[in-house]
């Protein structure tokens, strides 16, 4: 997986065969990379996988970055931070990885300067569009979870599928307001455990202390 910003030339290419969809086209957007000067108006294409900017002046000039590489995005309206309201993004780069893994002698030494771009600002000519752009970015970012995170989830059996999770969530909402302790038990999908513990506490009269503990817990959580 290639991290970071990359240069593209010509019209944006959308990989619809692999499920990539165009979510929004926003004309009249300037772009500013790191501390480089702001570039003349262009068109912003937001897809389910990436953000693409193509210059209006020179159609062969453009940039693209995957949502997987966008660490954070935010609406910036503070004139001290940047003179014009913009969507501020931070970009994770291959160079970041190399600092971490310390193999600086790899081939990336002659990669284009873009590999060092860690910030990108998108400046719409109409600042009213910022909140919408922010929302679209949020939706698309959520569609692109870390691939490594999913691998981990499969290794451990206490994480369940997305379908299950929706059911659990609906249930969870009900429990949330009543008993946060049970919420955590249920969120792990351990209905049986939660029930067993409950039955144990109710039915087994031999352990007087256990009941007291239960009361204590209730006091603490409310």
């Amino acid at each position: 997986m290639a991290l970071g910003l990359r240069e593209i030339s010509g019209e944006p290419v959308i990989d619809s065969e692999n499920g990539e969809e165009l979510m929004r086209v926003q004309p009249g957007v300037d772009i500013a990379l790191s501390n480089l000067p702001r570039e003349s108006p262009g068109t912003l294409y937001i897809t389910t996988k990436q953000v693409i900017w193509v210059s209006d002046v020179d159609k062969s000039k453009g940039y693209a970055v995957d949502f997987l590489s966008i660490s954070l995005h935010a609406v910036s309206r503070d004139p001290e931070a940047y003179p014009t309201p913009c969507l501020y993004t931070q970009i994770e780069t291959e160079a970041d990885d190399e600092i971490n893994s310390d193999n600086s002698d790899s081939e990336s030494n002659y990669v284009h300067d873009l590999s060092n771009i860690r910030e990108m600002r998108l400046i719409p000519s109409d600042p009213m569009q910022l909140d919408t752009l922010f929302q679209v970015f949020c939706e698309c970012a959520e569609l692109n979870p870390d691939p490594n995170a999913e691998e981990q989830e499969e290794e451990h059996d206490w994480i369940f599928s997305a379908d299950q999770m929706e059911d659990e969530e609906a249930e969870e909402e009900d429990y949330m307001s009543h008993n946060p302790t049970n919420t955590l038990g249920h969120s792990n999908g351990h209905h049986d455990l939660a029930r067993t513990i409950l039955e144990l506490q109710i039915n087994d009269q031999r352990f007087e202390d256990a009941e007291e503990i239960e009361h204590d817990e209730k006091d603490t959580h409310h």
Binding site: L72, A74, R77, A81, Y88, E92, F134, A141, P145
Partner: peptide, 10 residues
């Protein structure tokens, strides 16, 4: 910034 979205993996 007023609102900010942070990617869980970072």
């Amino acid at each position: 910034v007023r609102n900010c979205f942070i990617r869980g993996s970072v």
